[in-house]
Design a binder for these strands. Sequence first.
DNA 1: CGCTAGGTTGAATACGCTCAAAGATCGTGG
DNA 2: CCACGATCTTTGAGCGTATTCAACCTAGCG
Lengths: 238, 238
Amino acid sequence: MNPTLKKLEAALALSVEEQDYLRHLQGARRRIPAGQQIVVEGETYRQISFLIDGWAFRSKVLPDGRRQIFSYLIPGDLIGLRASLMEFADDTVEALTNCVVSSFSLERLYEACRAHPRLAVALMWSAAREQSILSEQVMRLGRRNAVERIAHFFLELLRRLQLVDEADRRSFELPLTQELIADTLGLSIVHVNRTLRTLRQRGLVMIDDGRLVIHDIEKLSEVASFDPLYLDQDAARA
Amino acid sequence: MNPTLKKLEAALALSVEEQDYLRHLQGARRRIPAGQQIVVEGETYRQISFLIDGWAFRSKVLPDGRRQIFSYLIPGDLIGLRASLMEFADDTVEALTNCVVSSFSLERLYEACRAHPRLAVALMWSAAREQSILSEQVMRLGRRNAVERIAHFFLELLRRLQLVDEADRRSFELPLTQELIADTLGLSIVHVNRTLRTLRQRGLVMIDDGRLVIHDIEKLSEVASFDPLYLDQDAARA
DNA sequence: CGCTAGGTTGAATACGCTCAAAGATCGTGG
DNA sequence: CCACGATCTTTGAGCGTATTCAACCTAGCG
């Protein structure tokens, strides 16, 4: 089942009609191959997509080539809502792995919000949660060192993936290269490599064949000052 | 006049009824003294406020005292929308200067969106713009050095303040201490001080008695790789 | 006048970067 | 089947940006 719907229903306790409406909203499923750009900086984009399967990421590149990855989109996340609301997209969304999405037009979104105002609230809640995650990214970059950044980032991914059944108690598939981690956390590739070694040697985390295993969640949370409050919130009851 | 309404009307071309409704929505104006916390991390908050006058900032503190400031709120910005949608606020909003706000309850917001669905779009657009600014903050922290961070931050403030008539062509009142700048840009106070000196000596920027003057906007934009696209966007025409 | 908050500067240190080179892994084509 | 290129990972060495610690200066205020 569509993980976005599941997430929204869980967080907001939608009525049966609202759930049905949402289900009826989504169009045909579409495959997007890894590497394809879904939203392109500077272009207009007028479509909202449920990300059903796969990972994508949002990024921007400076004129001299330095790249910053802002966030990762995993199953259950929405793609393109922000870009649809603005004249031009101001960042790029790219499929990291092969993805499956289900899209609908901005017009149909407006209809949906008119028919069921609580769906508009659901959308705003989803956007609010995204902003919480982005704020925590700012905290990582501004006030955490390399070890803390990576530890915190991994714990955030673990929790987010667990909420959509894509991670077990302490491990998950991690489709990231060290270069992507570097561009996410504002570090150099070399330093990411060394820091991962440190975490491994301390017995905290291991990456084995594309799978991240967290050996000691308690200790890693301690190291990272990880407080999952920002990820575990439901919406306010209206 | 309420700068938030002005901003929304300019960006979205609201109808006369919508404008009236918005105007009628706002309650009595209220003063908030500098230093007072408006939204507190971990508490519930169920109120939306137009920030009419003054500056506020959104921040979070790590257990060991390290503080990160995520963003500044200036006249025309909304306070508390995100916190209102979630169970608990996950960051703190504090008045930096004396502020004037006009608040209304979450319930009245819902009514407004039901009465005029385009107002919901206006809110989402406002939130989207906030997220653009936050993304650029991530870019500053992750992939820019101290000189670039400060230069870029000042140019962003200049542009944002100009849009609400709080800055002239190249200067504005800057109510920030070097400590606040440090906590915003992920630097130490000492390094902010030295970097400001560098910018001054290069003839780019000067802070004189609480007023920031940018001597050479072109050159500063060049130094910062500043592209104002993310600040100058109107909403998509529905 | 003395306290406090903010700004400025020097010296030593450290964290993370750059440059460079060498392994590992994998798909592809000769 | 192996050689080759491409991509990713790993490690060493030297360097540079930003930090920490410490001291001093300045202005505002009770």
